[in-house]
Amino acid sequence: MAFVDATRSLGRAGLFTLSVLRASAPTADFFRELTREIYKIGARSLPIIAVGGAFVGLSITLLGYRALETYGASNQVSAMLGLGLYRELGPVLTALLFIGRAGSSIAAELGLMRATDQITALGLMGIDPVGKAVAPRFWAAVLSVPLLTAIFCSLAITASYFESVHVIGLDAGTFWQVLKDAVDFSDDFMMAFVKSAVFGGTAALVASYVGYHAEPTIEGTSLATTKAVVNASLLVLMFNFVMSALLFK
């Protein structure tokens, strides 16, 4: 029975995804909504992403320096940081922070729209609620998360540079050269963008799906918010493993 329910849920989620893609018509109204959503879920997530990135950079640098120093390879700390960031930590941690900050708000907003008849009203006006309320949020996440990942990684590397050079005392030139040699533009840097776009889309779809189908009650909205964060986070971690296994040699 549980298997049947799970399969049914998966089918519903798949159909919902198709309806989002079908409803993504590039109209003036769509771009107006898209701009608004990029600001709401993208630009407003900047502070948490920037601060998160800086502290992750500081932590990895400290950890890497202590481990590498044992083998006399402390100048390789930026290589470890760069590869770790672009291949795994940057996209994953950005997506997790994004889910906490924006995914929860997408689920709560759509849940409240359901509870206050806003979604019903859209349908009754002959406006596809998925096209109006979900599609712009989905595409805003697909576009925003890669940019947020770039900012996350930039802040992490900048913080690492200051710690490595000005606190630990590593050579600045070596730091940048080792980083440049270790990180490949297409294999690492661009793949981080691809991963981030997938994670952003996944986060937005999960949050939208649970919010859009929430029970029209306070408890329903609360449950949808929790589900959005938990389910989206787990899916991102699963997709990250699958994509890393497939994309990176």
């Binding site: 019903t120 009754l124 006006m125 002959g126």
Partner: peptide
């Protein structure tokens, strides 16, 4: 529905 106006109990604004 474009030809049917509906005022909802909860307004739906």
């Amino acid at each position: 529905r474009q030809r049917v106006g509906m005022l909802l109990q909860g307004n739906g604004l």
